[in-house]
């Protein structure tokens, strides 16, 4: 606290509380909506207290799906989970290795390599979506996990993050391990990797959520309903043309879709703080 007067403190808490209400209320509403039947939600008089349809809604959503879109949410979650984990781990692997190369190895066109990576920051998937689609289609990777994951792995942000971190590690550590007989791979495995754990955790959180929330790319390359991700599933449930939208199932699915990212943040945050407190460079 910069100042500790009761009034400023009160104002600070008030702002905080307002912010929380604004963020939390829609989420609360979604959770409540997932506990009523369709009729209660549609007639516009949904109470703000939990209803009695929770068990029915969740089991139906998870194992059966909507009336029209008949894909169980559990399957969609599995697809999303594979994609998000694949993207997160793939990105970490690729960017930690390329950052290692750029920082610790002297090779011709090292600077060029770095700048090429840097420039790709300006080309997110949405910009290069057609060529990327063409390549993935030609490789026969439509409707595969590889096709879902691979184009989203290449990451300049991750490489930059690791590069910045590696540059703060004192050179003497590298020299000490050289004298201790550790080659390039051992230095990476025994020293760099353990020291990077917090950076890896941070990147994992960001990239898992990025992967989980992907919409455009899975929409383009998945046609089979068995490959559908949960974000697309929700969208499909809401935009129905002929039938009534099953809001209770849509809301249930939305709540389920929120769970994994929340769990990742909650779980990784611990590791985060632990790392921040304990690591000394």
């Amino acid at each position: 606290m910069v100042e500790n007067r009761p009034f400023t403190q009160f104002m600070a808490y008030l702002t905080l509380a307002l912010g929380i209400v604004i963020v939390v209320f829609p989420v609360y509403l979604a959770i409540m909506a997932s506990t009523f039947d369709a009729a209660t939600i549609v007639n516009g008089n949904m109470p703000l207290t939990p209803g009695d349809q929770a068990g029915e809604n969740y089991s139906r959503a998870l194992f059966y799906g909507g009336k029209l879109a008949r894909e169980p949410v559990s399957m969609m979650m599995m697809n999303s989970m594979i994609m998000a984990l694949g993207i997160a781990f793939g990105k970490i692997l690729i960017s930690i290795l390329s950052a290692y190369a750029v920082v610790y190895f002297k090779f011709p066109f090292r600077k060029t390599a770095f700048w090429v990576i840097f420039i790709t920051l300006m080309l997110p998937v949405e910009v290069r979506i057609y060529p990327t689609y063409k390549i993935v289609a030609d490789l026969g990777l439509l409707d595969t996990y590889t096709g879902l994951i691979m184009p989203l792995i290449a990451s300049a942000t991750g490489t930059l993050l690791f590069r910045q971190f590696f540059m703060t590690i004192p050179d003497e550590l590298l020299e000490a391990s050289k004298i201790d007989g550790a080659g390039a791979f051992r230095f990476f495995k025994d020293t760099l990797l353990p020291l990077s754990m917090t950076t890896i955790a941070a990147l994992f959180v960001i990239q898992f959520i990025y992967g989980w929330n992907q919409y455009l790319w899975p929409l383009l390359i998945t046609t089979k309903s068995s490959m559908q991700t949960i974000v697309i599933g929700i969208k499909k449930m809401i935009t129905t043309t002929d039938a009534l939208t099953e809001w209770q199932i849509a809301m249930t699915t939305a709540v389920l879709a929120m769970l994994p990212p929340v769990l990742v943040v909650v779980f990784m945050q611990r590791l985060f703080v632990k790392g921040l407190v304990e690591t000394e460079k």
């Binding site: 003497e172 000490a176 391990s177 004298i179 025994d190 020293t191 353990p194 020291l195 000394e280 460079k281």
Partner: peptide, 13 residues
């Protein structure tokens, strides 16, 4: 050879 560095260069982890 073995070397002792100014900032010790101990492996922090």
């Amino acid at each position: 050879i073995a070397m002792v560095f100014q900032n010790y260069a101990l492996y922090p982890h």
